[in-house]
Simulated scan of single mutants.
Amino acid sequence: MAEPHLIGEAMTGGYGRGADILHGCTLSVDKGEIAVIVGPNGAGKSTAMKAVFGMLNLRSGSVRIGGEDITHLSPQDRVAKGMAFVPQTSNIFPSMTVEENLEMGAFLRRDDIRPTIEQVYDLFPILRDKRRQAAGELSGGQRQQVAVGRALMTQPSVLMLDEPTAGVSPIVMDELFDRIIEVARAGITILMVEQNARQALEIADTGYVLVQGANAYTGTGAELMADDEVRRTFLGG
Rank of each mutant, 00 (worst) to 15 (best):
I7L: 12
M11I: 04
G13S: 01
G14T: 04
G18V: 11
A19Y: 00
A19I: 06
I21V: 13
T26S: 14
L27P: 09
V29T: 14
V29H: 11
D30E: 15
K31I: 08
A35R: 04
G39D: 05
G39S: 09
P40C: 06
N41W: 02
K45S: 13
S46W: 11
S46K: 12
A48Q: 12
A51S: 08
L56V: 03
L58V: 09
R59E: 09
G61F: 09
S62P: 01
R64Q: 05
G66S: 00
D69F: 00
T71L: 01
H72K: 08
L73H: 06
L73C: 05
L73W: 04
P75Q: 08
R78A: 09
A80W: 07
Q88Y: 02
N91D: 13
N91V: 14
P94S: 08
P94F: 06
P94H: 14
V98Y: 01
L102Q: 05
L102C: 03
F107Q: 11
R110W: 01
R110M: 00
D111W: 07
D111T: 07
D111S: 07
D112L: 05
I113V: 14
I113H: 12
I113E: 11
I113L: 08
I113G: 03
I113F: 06
R114S: 13
P115G: 13
T116F: 05
V120S: 01
Y121R: 09
Y121W: 11
L123D: 09
L123K: 08
L123Q: 11
L123T: 11
P125A: 06
R132Q: 15
R132D: 15
R132G: 15
Q133G: 01
G136T: 14
E137M: 15
E137T: 15
G141S: 08
G141M: 09
Q144V: 04
V148H: 02
G149I: 03
R150W: 02
L152F: 02
T154W: 03
L159R: 15
L159D: 15
D162H: 04
E163P: 01
P164F: 00
S169C: 06
P170T: 10
D174Q: 10
E175N: 14
F177G: 03
R179G: 04
V183F: 00
G187V: 12
G187D: 09
I188P: 08
I188H: 06
T189M: 06
L191A: 13
V193Q: 14
G207D: 11
Y208L: 12
Y217P: 01
T218Y: 13
E223R: 02
D227N: 12
D228C: 02
E229L: 02
V230L: 02
T233R: 15
G236N: 13
